[in-house]
Amino acid sequence: MLYCRKFFSIILLTLLLVGSFSPATHAAEAVLIGLNLPLSGSLRDLGEDTLAGAELLGSQINDQGGLLVGQTRYPVQFITVDNESNVEKSVSGALKLISRDKVLGIIGPNASSNAIPVGGICSSFKAPMITPTSTNPATTLNRPFVFRSCFLDDFQGEAMAKFAIKQFNAQKAAVLYDKDNAYSKGLAKFFKKSFEEQRGAGAVVVFADYQSNPGDLRSQLTTIVNSGAEVVFVPQFAHELPGILKQIRAAGWDKPVLGGDAWESSELMKNCGDLCKGLFFSSHFSPYGTTGKSLTFVKDYEKKNGKLPTGFAALGYDATNLLLAAISKLNTLDIDLFELRTEIKEHIATIRDFDGVSGTINMNISGDPAKSAVIIRINEDGRFEAYGSENP
């Protein structure tokens, strides 16, 4: 209850700081896009990769003279707020972008714990939002102005449950998750539901939780090791994984460890090393073995950034591209801002067969595209190689 009062106090304070939400004619000199990303804090690497993907697309469009809207080309300009991997900063940043900066739409946040409340803000103030990576269904649920460029956790959980059964013939599974994190908790539940639908009630023999910033997990891991489980599913963020894996191995677990898309990070192997080699996780994209538009993206990204793109970079590129594609369908930018945002929302919802670098995107009115999942194996060289795929 204290958290709720504090949370809404911040919203009210920010409203006073950023000013009125009254409609105004939008005299455009540029296409203004808000980026609400974690550029510091525990999820910094996710935000930086997403930003790099968006900025690559922006530079490509501006190099061609800008985005064509009606008969006029406009430069694409990003206004970035660092949400510091923090809920309150995510909300205040969204309100600033919507009111003070008067952006046409927002890309982000990344993490579901931040995207869910920001989605509520964007829906309330009728500002289009596309999250590149929030996979929790609650982010878009009953929010017509909120979209995503990634798959959902219900599908991701099902994909990893199917993989555990097909790859390892697993009859029993264990799950270890952070009960205070919306992403981890939601994905854990969807994995359990799908695994037990295929293997029977009780086939997830341990469903163990912990509170954020795990310390001593010996109690949970002792139960898992002695449970008879043949795989353990650990839907955590990459920065938490090395410490958890050290404890898992120290507890005597030598069987497969599986994860979700939040494992993917450009910093993971530096921090995890040999502990992560040979493990599997679900993702949206692999830079290896790509063709066509995806291959062009990989080459352009590597040239600009000096490294291969992660799935978060690809989704940042695609989310921004979806928003700009919708804006390009407008006849003009020089009308009421609220009307512009509503038209953009309508155009996003009708996008079909969109050729994204992370795959074909078919958007719908719910804001949730149907997309395949890539199963990534971390090979002996520490590379994230595409091992297989699961389709919706």
Rank of each mutant, 00 (worst) to 15 (best):
Leu2Phe: 01
Tyr3Lys: 11
Phe8Lys: 04
Leu15Gln: 07
Ser22Tyr: 01
Ala27Trp: 00
Leu35Phe: 00
Leu39Trp: 05
Arg44Ser: 08
Glu48His: 13
Thr50Gly: 13
Ala52Trp: 07
Leu56Tyr: 02
Gly58Asp: 00
Gly66Asp: 05
Gln71Lys: 14
Asn83Leu: 03
Lys89Trp: 01
Val91Glu: 02
Lys96Glu: 09
Ile98Lys: 01
Asp101Ala: 14
Gly105Trp: 05
Ile121His: 12
Pro128Trp: 11
Thr135Gly: 04
Thr135Ile: 15
Thr135Ser: 12
Asn136Glu: 10
Asn136Tyr: 08
Arg143Val: 00
Arg143Gln: 00
Pro144Tyr: 00
Gly157Ala: 14
Glu158Ser: 15
Glu158Gln: 15
Lys162Glu: 09
Lys166Asn: 13
Gln167Asn: 10
Asn169Glu: 13
Ala173Asp: 11
Leu176Gln: 07
Leu187Lys: 00
Phe191Tyr: 07
Lys192Gly: 03
Phe195Thr: 11
Gly202Thr: 02
Gly215His: 11
Gln236Cys: 05
Lys246Thr: 15
Ile248Pro: 02
Arg249Phe: 07
Gly259Ile: 10
Trp263Ala: 13
Glu267Pro: 11
Leu268Glu: 10
Leu268Ser: 11
Leu268Lys: 12
Met269Phe: 13
Cys276Gly: 08
Lys277Glu: 06
Thr290Ala: 11
Gly306Phe: 04
Lys307His: 09
Thr310His: 00
Thr310Leu: 02
Asp318Ser: 12
Ala319Tyr: 07
Asn321Lys: 10
Leu323Met: 15
Ala325Pro: 00
Ser328Glu: 05
Leu333Phe: 06
Ile335Cys: 02
Leu337Trp: 00
Leu340Ile: 02
Glu343Leu: 15
His347Ser: 06
Ile348Cys: 07
Phe354Ile: 14
Gly359Pro: 01
Gly359Asn: 03
Thr360Ile: 14
Ala370Asp: 07
Gly382Ser: 08
